[in-house]
């Protein structure tokens, strides 16, 4: 089954465990500045929102890359940056409408979420279920269940209780 990272901002507390897990997975240090997932704190409303690459099917970054350094991981659907090929031209960072692929000055390459090869560390680390890795075809299931619950507030005909 193909899976997707599912981000539910209503459950995010802004604890940054995801950012630390991401940097630790990829760089072996706890370092949010190297994280490929970012948590945004909208202070005026109190909302905390995690955000990262949504792995577009027709990925702007992939099409923009002049050296074909971005390829598709067939198993996960992730768009992967091949560091050996990447020349650090940053065109992909301009092409991406969402800002989720970024240059890393230390390496001279770009980086983006690669879904950790199918075991995303951010989802593992999230203590509240704000980040989950679920059936790619049913990311709306949770929200459907919530609405379904609202419909089920009348006793059905023939129901004993």
């Amino acid at each position: 089954m193909m899976r997707s990272l599912h981000l539910d901002a209503t459950k995010c507390t802004g604890c940054m465990q995801c950012e630390m897990a991401c940097s630790y997975e990829n760089y072996g240090v706890f370092n949010p500045s190297k994280s490929r997932i970012k948590v945004f704190d909208f202070h005026e409303t109190g909302r905390k929102v995690p955000y990262t690459c949504t792995q577009c099917d027709e990925a702007w970054c992939l099409h923009a890359c002049p050296v074909e350094a971005i390829t598709v991981d067939k198993a996960t659907g992730a768009k992967i940056v091949n560091e050996a090929t990447c020349v650090g031209c940053k065109v992909c960072t301009i092409a991406c409408p969402f800002g989720t692929i970024n240059y890393v000055a230390d390496t001279g390459k770009v980086q983006k979420c690669d879904l950790c090869g199918g075991k995303p560390a951010c989802a593992d680390a999230c203590p509240t279920g704000a980040i989950t890795y679920i059936d790619a075809d049913w990311t709306g299931l949770d929200r459907m269940r919530q609405w379904a619950g609202k419909l089920d507030n009348q006793p059905a005909a023939g129901h004993a209780d």
Binding site: T13, C15, M16, Q17, G46
Partner: peptide, 10 residues
């Protein structure tokens, strides 16, 4: 409005 975590807090 909501609860909020400090850095690293679960």
């Amino acid at each position: 409005v909501t609860n909020q975590a400090c850095f690293g807090c679960t």
